[in-house]
């Protein structure tokens, strides 16, 4: 009440105080403790880097020498190729499994459930070795009518090379995980959206492709990025079935030269390099599927454009607003 009367008594003084209290002019206090922490952290980081750089045992000259060597690069291509192919197949099969798992059809959903149960429930390493040794179980693979005549037949050893065993093992295992990620994404879409597509007479395929999957992508992309990064490293498991991936290639070198740590550093730096690129890519994809969301970059950009247009059309008004 007193404040009120004061304002009434001397409006000029009230205005002056209001100007002083304008939060737009508030200063940020100097935080000594924050600066100190930054300083200490940077100091420790610099010291750590200096130690690593000067440690002879890392063999940095050897790392640089082998970093772009042909055998290493060939291994890198195998790792990247295997990752891309296995992931692509895994996503496609995973999508089919997810849709089957969510369907009202009991047969489809239990078959998908069985698949996911088996491939998530057994170690990837075992699955890889199993595929590689498939010929000991089934010397011949044939297409036939159940209990009927054989239509076509192949020798398993001709079909299962380290490459096909690696792709089959990685892709089929990945499909089980992707199925669950995609299923979660599809479930995250508002029920009203699905209902709307039904009310508008969309077929299920079109509704999935145009309305449901684009919205599900917002929650599918982050864990899929995770899976992709896991996959790059999981490809290193294929070295057990004599597939010359990045890890296998550097192992082949250090088995000859005994420069274990430098060669592993070559592999580690390559793995980090690839995952860093993927992180950037994931950011772009997430921003794309976040369009239309409040606070997304698209919306913000449009707001900025709108603000620019406004200030161009009515500069006086914008000035007023900025005051």
């Amino acid at each position: 009440m007193t404040g009120n009367t004061q304002t009434l008594a001397s409006p000029a003084k009230g205005d002056a105080e209001a100007a002083l209290r304008d939060v737009a002019n508030a200063h940020k206090p100097f935080r000594t403790d924050r600066w100190l922490l930054w300083g200490i952290t940077l100091l420790i980081a610099a010291n750590f880097l200096w130690i690593v750089a000067n440690n002879q045992n890392f063999g940095w000259p050897i790392v640089f020498q082998w970093f772009t060597e042909a055998t290493v690069l060939r291994g890198l291509y195998v790792t990247l190729g295997l990752t891309v192919v296995a992931m692509a197949i895994g996503v496609v099969i995973g999508l089919v499994l997810a849709i089957a798992r969510l369907s009202n059809d009991r047969l489809a959903s239990s078959l998908a459930g069985l698949y996911i149960w088996f491939f998530r429930g057994t170690p990837l390493l075992v699955q890889l070795i199993f595929w590689y040794n498939l010929s000991t179980l089934f010397p011949e693979i044939s297409i036939a009518i159940p209990f009927g005549p054989t239509l076509a037949s192949w020798n398993t050893n001709d079909l299962i090379t380290p490459m096909t065993a690696a792709i089959a093992g990685l892709a089929l295992n990945e499909a089980a995980y992707m199925a669950e990620i995609i299923r979660g994404g599809l479930l995250s879409v508002d029920k009203g959206q699905i209902e709307t597509t039904e009310a508008f007479g969309m077929t299920r395929t079109r509704a999935l492709r145009r309305i449901i999957i684009p919205q599900a992508m917002r929650s599918i992309v982050p864990p899929t990025g995770n899976q992709l990064i896991s996959m790059i490293k999981a490809t290193s498991l294929v070295s057990v079935i004599a597939m010359a991936d990045l890890l296998y290639s550097v192992q082949a070198v250090y088995n000859r030269t005994f420069e274990v740590i430098p060669m592993l550093m070559v592999a580690v730096i390559w793995y980090l390099f690839i995952t860093s690129i993927l992180n950037v890519g994931q950011g772009f994809i997430e921003r794309y599927y976040g369009r239309g969301e409040r606070g997304s970059s698209t919306a913000r950009k449009q707001d900025k454009v709108a603000a620019a247009a406004l200030s161009a059309v009515v500069p006086a008004l914008a000035q007023e607003a900025s005051k």
Binding site: G192, E195, T196, A199, F200, G201, M202, T203, G292
Partner: peptide, 26 residues
């Protein structure tokens, strides 16, 4: 089946309480 029901629905428009616009489209 669902596909045939979709065709039957195509002459009916519907407006929902929660609007249900597709958020990823203009």
């Amino acid at each position: 089946p669902a596909r045939a029901i979709a065709v039957q629905r195509r002459q009916i428009g519907m407006v929902f309480q929660q609007f249900n616009l597709y958020p990823h489209m203009t």
